[in-house]
Design a protein around this nucleic acid. Structure first.
Lengths: 141, 141
DNA sequence: CTAGAAGCTAGAGCGCTGTCTAAGTCAAGT
DNA sequence: ACTTGACTTAGACAGCGCTCTAGCTTCTAG
């Protein structure tokens, strides 16, 4: 399990090399990335795992700031598990709320899609149905 | 029925008056908001309905630009229902993908929450369990 | 030996979505 | 008449999360 270059990590995580350096500057990595003698970054499998977790956090809407806070808790070591738990639970709630909200939106959108689908199906069957009265109806929607 | 002031619309939609003016400037309203003789905006119930829809779009991640495109289609009037449908369907897919992604994230987060919950429960039961070996385990997570 | 790919740092720039400011108008209450 | 507060405009500014550039070094292959 030799170390990985930044390019390899970019490929494996889907983050850009820019983003990887950015995340490091922002203090999102549990431990500072090791360097080769020439100064180049060497990532471990653990770093990749950590980044994978960070990506999950990010793509579920956790701000970088919160990820940083979590990172700091982990860096501090043992003793603050309750804090980490609280942070994670709060994010869990946030994600659940997001999903619920999205489901509501999806319902509305689906309702609208269905209406238009009927409209379009009808219109394809007989284009003469397009009249001023259907126009008024379509503008109201 | 009687028109609504910008403040009333803000209250009813949850958008700020700033945001309402901003949305109007950005061309997100189906028809330009009517004005009183003194220049103040007068919103109709239809405007509120439209805004409610826009809010659903926004909160499900549709960029303002896309909302504007949709608005323009509606403004053009009858004849482009297929385009509107395509736009809506594409967003529908997008929202579904988001929900799926969030569910995946939720699984990972829940898994982590459970681990910490056990940790913390155990720690509360007996704080002496906090030892260098547990520290190593916690840092790996 | 050299070209090209990959890495480095510091910092500027960008797209999105508001949010706020400045400077002023208007209507109602006391 | 004066105050209060809600409204108007155009445009500046802000926060987030990257993304890219400039200018440089270092490695690798031919």
């Amino acid at each position: 399990m030799g170390g990985l270059s930044i390019g390899q990590v970019a490929e494996r995580t889907g983050l850009s090399v820019h983003a990887l350096r950015f995340y490091e500057r922002e203090g999102l990595l549990a431990d500072p990335v090791r360097r080769e003698s020439n100064g180049r970054r060497v990532y471990s499998e653990d770093d990749v795992d950590w980044l994978t977790m960070c990506i999950k956090f990010r793509s579920s809407g956790m701000p970088l700031d919160t990820i940083r806070k979590y990172t700091e808790l982990v860096r501090q070591g043992v003793g603050n598990e309750a804090d980490r738990l609280a942070l994670l639970k709060s994010h869990q709630d946030f994600v659940r709320a997001q999903i619920e909200e999205l489901n509501e939106c999806l319902n509305v959108i689906t309702w609208k899609v269905d209406i238009y689908q009927q409209h379009v199906d009808a219109g394809t069957a007989d284009c003469l149905w397009v009249t001023p009265s259907t126009q008024a109806a379509s503008e109201a929607s």
